[in-house]
Amino acid sequence: MSGSVNRPAFAPASVADDLSARGFGRATRRILFDKWIGRLLPLLFIVVVFPILDMIWWIAQNALPTMTWSTLTTPLYGDVGGLYGAILGTTYLAGLALAICGVLGIFGGMYTAEYASPRTATFARLFGNILAGTPAIVIGYTGYFLLVLYTGWGTSIAAGAITLSVFMLPWVFRTTDLAFLSVPPTLREASLGLGATHRQYLFRVGFPVAFPRILTGIFIALAIGVGETAPLIFTAGWQLAPATSLTQGTSYLTGLIWTYFDEPANLGHLLALSFQAAFILFVIVIGLNVVVQIIGARYRRRLKGLFA
């Protein structure tokens, strides 16, 4: 008895042992239930971990044996060649889209966090989040009508990149917004109290502090842009030769998988190629996510330091 008095009542294991030893029926049952649910619930993580591991295993097994350095450096021609054209196309599309949505998103988020009235800010955030939830294929259809047909550009890198940037924008937008909101108010008060104008505060104090977090938004948007297929199917066209101008269509990594995933076995090279594209996508996206986690963790530590 005396041993358990000083122990907190919610330390389950030991209390359960105590109570069961003394034959407390209902309390024992409750505490044992708590103990076992704490052991069984983590099994649900199999659902999360199994797909990742299974995916990594099979994609690596289908992609790596035939993957050489020349896979990355030769363009696809007919059904022979490598991924050079697709990698180049993805770089163009995602890079251009990132430039567009980066500028719009950073300025939009900055304004929402720092200048907008509470009502404007609420609506801006709501619409940002709604845009983030819009089905990609719907954005792709809109891009097809507005950019491919209406402007007369035809399917091209420019049309694809602009459509893609609409899909990526909300991620930059809302991370920038939150980044500025997370700057400690003490810093703002100190700088304004020392006589800084609002703009000086924004660019000399707020932006440097918020920058790592803005960077995570940009990386997330990049990961989404590299991995997205649906907005590009009808806007970016399809051309195997490496792209040389923005008005041409292009091949891209996700589109390559999309085009060749159900090739019959006699064209096994194309299937292997799409697995290699999937492998590259996987590495890029997971890599970007890991970078984001690291930057985020360092950022939180740094904020703690600013408060201390």
Partner: peptide, 24 residues
């Protein structure tokens, strides 16, 4: 550790899920 791993699943491109589902 668990939170980032779950979040990472959300970032995997849907076309990768697709080829995994169709071929494997």
């Amino acid at each position: 550790l668990a939170a980032p791993v779950t979040d990472m699943l959300a970032g995997i491109p849907s076309v990768v899920y697709g080829i995994w589902g169709y071929v494997i």
